[in-house]
Design a protein around this nucleic acid. Sequence first.
DNA 1: TTGTAAGCGTTATCAC
DNA 2: GTGATAACGCTTACAA
Lengths: 340, 340
Amino acid sequence: MKKSATIYDISEKLNISAATVSRALNDHPKISQKTKELVMKAAKELNYKQNTLAQALKSGKTNNIGIIVPYINTNFFSSLIRGIEEELSPHGYHVIICQSHEDVDLERKQLNTLLNAQVDGIFMSVSKTTEDISHIEAAKESNTPIIFFDRKKDIAGISTVTIDDYKGGYLATEHLIKQGCRRICHLSGDLRLEIYQNRYNGYIDALKDNKLTFKEEYVFPIKSSIEDGVEAIKTLWNLSSPPDGIFSASDYAALGACQQLKKKNISIPEDVAIIGFSNEPFTQYMELPISSVDQTPDIMGKISAQVFLEYMNENFSGISIEKKVVLNPQIHIRKSSKRK
Amino acid sequence: MKKSATIYDISEKLNISAATVSRALNDHPKISQKTKELVMKAAKELNYKQNTLAQALKSGKTNNIGIIVPYINTNFFSSLIRGIEEELSPHGYHVIICQSHEDVDLERKQLNTLLNAQVDGIFMSVSKTTEDISHIEAAKESNTPIIFFDRKKDIAGISTVTIDDYKGGYLATEHLIKQGCRRICHLSGDLRLEIYQNRYNGYIDALKDNKLTFKEEYVFPIKSSIEDGVEAIKTLWNLSSPPDGIFSASDYAALGACQQLKKKNISIPEDVAIIGFSNEPFTQYMELPISSVDQTPDIMGKISAQVFLEYMNENFSGISIEKKVVLNPQIHIRKSSKRK
DNA sequence: TTGTAAGCGTTATCAC
DNA sequence: GTGATAACGCTTACAA
């Protein structure tokens, strides 16, 4: 293992002190131009690479940030991570990714190893099983800034970047009503998570505001899979008066619903109008494109990163403001719900 | 900024040396059980967290690995990264992700910052514009293990994990021939990349082995977009004898082709059979599901990680073997190419 | 403008 | 079993 050159190797070669080398490398104003040039040249020759580790130990700043998500390979989270990376990379940060697998124990472990690794900040979207939040509160004590995106918990002092899921649910439902739907059902996600609860609340209020009665039997719990959408149709079409509109909290369940309805020869959107949530890429590729509510994960990622950068600046000057950014959901109307 | 406890805080509290504390924490065999217990208890009380940074500086091992991909938010790369993370996380590694945006200059920069950050290993898939590979060869000199996955370059001493793209192209083409296709065209990817060149070669050889003549005009270059697939059909259907089979190096172009053919009222698979590449999730969701060649990115990620772990062990004992793992592509036959 | 020396938090090598 | 000390590579008062 050939070890790489250090500032001492440069200092020896040039017969100057390591401190001077360090300063020259950092473009310190009080170092003569000539010395700087000499140092730069020697650095090139020796193939010197800054050891950011030593620098980090000294300064207490690693220039690493950590992200914890349930799974990285979904369109939503990977787009979000891309947004964060692209915003932070130009500022010299490296992005460490961790998966919680929707498991609070793993989430806790990941959070702690990130803290041990001295990351400068942590971005996270909590798992479905995160009810006890003591690990996050403990992490807050370490003074490492934490930022929640999408799936948040209410903890004083922690900034959040989310979309207005309530509004998303409201707009989607209202859209179906405007298309003439009167018996609208909701395929609801895991209500332990705020985001799904909010979409549900938006659905309920849109019904209410339009004088439509809410029916318990029109709410079908799903797990964001195609199969669940299929099941939903099977169950709902056993009712005395089946729905004429479907607002699904998941695009996958919406897809399953479409498939099953087609099997039953029920036409979309004439007999049943459908709208999903997340604007998964596939929704627009279908022969029958599916309407959906876009969460703009790329923007959410970029904004989260900006909130972090602002925090780093504020904190530098001693101030620190908790931010709660709420983005507007973008509704995409496609064939599955457009009756004209 | 409340700074966290160090081994010195523990050593003061217990009136023992920091060295002893360190040894107790690391379960050194020569430390008495009583001391260990005392130290553990004090560590808990002081909320001591191991500073992995200091440890890394001392040991030269950061337990971080870096991944460089063109973009993280594609199904292929995000699944691959997931595979690497899940294999390496249990071994205590953190995964840093970087994007090259298909730009060799950015790739070089990312590679160098990863090296500066002293990562223990680098996984990369080269960008489309990577022709000069001097930055990778220079990185090799640092003795940081590098592993190519999917998009590789031939560099002595660097292990690679890829799928057999040649075989993928061959099997896909052969499948079309078995379905009765005689005029098979190929929507080819960027031939600067080995993977696309190999798929192309597989196509050519399958034609040859089945006594079908290769026609230059049946090869249409694409950029993995839906629009390119649409364009391909427009152009190819101007030929005196248009194709009756399409092997696309990209699922997106295959989708575009399907859309355009439908517009022209040409039936799939009866008039034209189509098969794509990558097995993007959407291919199976379509009303007309599209056949495709699966690159099994999850497996590719896990194997890449294993190659890295093996290297770390071998290197420990002074040996080091260059590995070239080639995975078998999995062909998924769906409606778009199944004539029965 | 440059040099000296201390320190960031660990761990490894000697001692005892 | 445990303690003292040096070292990992860098930055930064304080001196000169």
